[in-house]
Design a protein around this nucleic acid. Structure first.
Length: 553
RNA sequence: GGCGGCGUAGCUCAUUUGGUCUAGAGCGUCCGUCUCAUAAGCGGAAGGUAGUGGGUUCGAAUCCCACCGCCGCCA
């Protein structure tokens, strides 16, 4: 018998910025969506790797570190550790690294050296703000001054938050350095290196046309291409970051946008290095064909990075890397009343705080069910309550408990190998088909809704057949088939919950193929178990209020 | 200001390329009911002029135009 190698799937989740732990919106957009997809493809029997890591460079981290009086390295290391804990608590099963990894440095160096050799790197001398007191060039955000339009004294070098006008650093009146607070700013000439995107445009267009990205992803990308691409600077005069490998660029670093996404490749390399299989990454990245599928999850703001800038970086190397196949982008999850999450202003729940309120699996279920796939949504306690108590507890967990209790009460906990009645098997097969279709299209919330719908069918069925009256072993067998299908289909969303159900239903590492499959022999159920505790949303809310209250000075 | 996206019952969403009649479902609400189950389940009812206003069509939530609101990109 010939065993074909399993289809490979690489899930790439957007890299959390290591200035702070991710908030709920970041989490659902990147890592959680990626985990659900990865688990789905594993359930289907694919060879799956899910990678991401902490994005540790850039001026935001430098500034945040400065505010806290620590080095950028100290700050990002600390946040990275926190994120690792969060990943564990949210039951995310992936390879998570950081842009500080040596493999990443090496890969970024190699790639840009090749890009330079291939003639895709140009350089240009420009004037940039420089603080003579601190002796360094200042990123736009590090300069503050008076807005020339509205007169606000708190405008930044890139924009005035008070009137919304976009600015150039040179437009600010009385510019001062946000690091030392002094007005010791002058403009000096400096040379920076650019990725020649216009030169890569034909290749990019061919790639985008070939992949045919859907919906908002396609539109975003088209618009950007329509406007025409300009060369983008890939270096900056900073100390924190990956040193630029170009001739004459000593003392400069590769700017964060130009290296973080390359981490998808270097993380894959690093994963296989640790498996003592240093060439294991190649089938994932060097096969241009259909035997590997690349799916990216991130917030909508990152779409162009993944459809244009990141592919451009890969193309500039001259190596024919596998380019993105699918972008599963989310809209935004905002806080109550449409407010933006803000750590400093104390708005919203960050992932570390979320875990103090409820276990990770509860958040998973809520976030994946309400995943913003069509438009921005606002968090609400009511939705959280409905998702957990209404859908997961009352409908799903209760149905499974109901079935196992019935089986034990009147049938000795034994499921006989009966054929599944056609309406039940039809419902299971129909759900499975819609579920797969949704997942393959990257519509994770939709897949979960199909599962929830099956639980409704299950309750209707049990109610109608009344297996608590007389002996109806075939009804119990059908109900068992429903419970089993639910447990398996739910595993990409709430893995620990599914594991508990597997134990009760006597299932051993089932796969997608087991959904709707006929039992060959008698099954002896484990003792009925209360599978999920409900939440008291008012208590959770009170705990949240207290947590936030404690933080205020 | 320019470009793009979105706008369906209180909430979350369905309505495959415009056409099964009174636009569906879950949750919530109200009424009824079973009792195996986590005060869960089931049945029924109320609830939408599909953002608004025009237009195309025999027929539009689904196509076109304008306006309003939200979001994003750009200036």
């Amino acid at each position: 018998m010939i065993t074909l190698s399993k289809p490979k799937v690489l899930i790439c989740s957007g890299w959390p910025y290591a200035s702070n732990v991710p908030h709920l919106g970041n989490l659902i957009g990147c890592l959680l969506s990626g985990d659900a997809l990865a688990r789905y493809y594993r359930l289907k029997g694919c060879d799956v790797l899910h990678v991401s890591g902490s994005d540790t460079h850039g001026t935001n981290i430098e500034f945040e570190a400065f505010k806290r009086g620590v080095s950028p390295k100290e700050l990002s290391d600390r946040v990275h550790q926190q994120i690792l804990e969060i990943i564990k608590a949210f039951e995310i099963d992936m390879y998570y690294t950081t842009t500080e990894s040596p493999t990443h440095y090496r890969f970024v160096h190699d790639l840009y050296k090749k890009a330079e050799a291939n003639g895709y790197i140009t350089s240009l001398e420009e004037e940039q703000a420089y603080c003579t007191h601190d002796g360094k060039f200042l990123a736009d955000r590090f300069i503050q001054g008076t807005c020339p339009h509205c007169g606000s004294p708190n405008a930044y070098g890139n924009q005035c938050d008070d009137c919304g006008t976009l600015l150039e650093p040179s437009e600010l009146k009385n510019p001062r350095c946000r690091i030392c607070g002094q007005s010791t700013i002058s403009f000096r000439k400096t040379r920076n290196w650019y990725l020649d995107l216009p030169k890569l445009e034909p290749q990019l267009k061919a790639f985008i046309a070939a992949k045919g990205f859907q919906d908002n992803v396609g539109k975003f990308t088209e618009n950007l291409l329509k406007e025409g691409l300009k060369p983008r600077a890939v270096t900056r005069d900073l100390e924190w970051g990956i040193p630029a490998p170009f001739q004459g660029a000593e003392g400069k670093v590769i700017y964060v946008w130009a290296e973080a996404a390359l981490g998808y490749v270097s993380a894959t390399m690093e994963y296989f290095e640790k498996q003592s299989n240093p060439r294991g990454w190649e089938p994932f990245w060097l096969d241009e064909g259909k035997s590997v599928k690349h799916v990216y999850t991130q917030g909508k703001d990152n779409i162009p990075f993944h459809t244009i800038f990141f592919p451009a970086q890969l193309l500039s190397s001259g190596t024919r890397y596998h380019l993105p196949d699918q972008i599963s982008a989310t809209e935004y999850l905002n806080w109550i009343g449409g407010q933006k999450f803000s750590k400093t202003r104390g708005i919203g729940v960050y992932s570390d705080e979320a875990l103090k309120l409820l276990p990770g699996s509860y958040w998973r279920f809520y976030l994946l069910l309400l995943r913003p796939e069509q438009r921005d949504i606002d968090f609400s306690w009511e939705d959280l309550d409905k998702a957990i108590n209404g859908v997961l507890a009352n409908n799903i967990a209760n149905l499974i408990h109901r079935v196992t209790s019935l089986a034990h009460r009147s049938y000795g906990g034994i499921i006989s190998p009966t054929a599944i009645a056609s309406p039940v098997s039809k419902a299971i097969e129909g759900t499975k088909a819609k579920y797969q279709q949704a997942f393959e299209a990257g519509s994770i919330a939709q897949a979960l809704r199909h599962v929830a719908d099956l639980a409704v069918v299950g309750n209707e069925y049990v109610q109608k057949e009344r297996p608590w009256e007389g002996q109806k072993p075939e009804v119990i067998a059908n109900a068992y088939a429903l419970a089993k299908a639910l447990a398996i289909l739910l595993s990409p969303f709430v893995p620990s919950f599914s594991e508990r159900v597997y134990r009760v239903l006597s299932l051993n590492a089932p796969t997608l193929d087991d959904v709707g499959r006929l039992e060959q022999r008698e099954i002896r159920l484990g003792p009925p178990e209360r599978l999920l505790e409900k939440i008291d949303i008012e208590e959770v809310r009170a705990a949240y209020d207290q947590m936030k209250g404690d933080k205020k000075p």
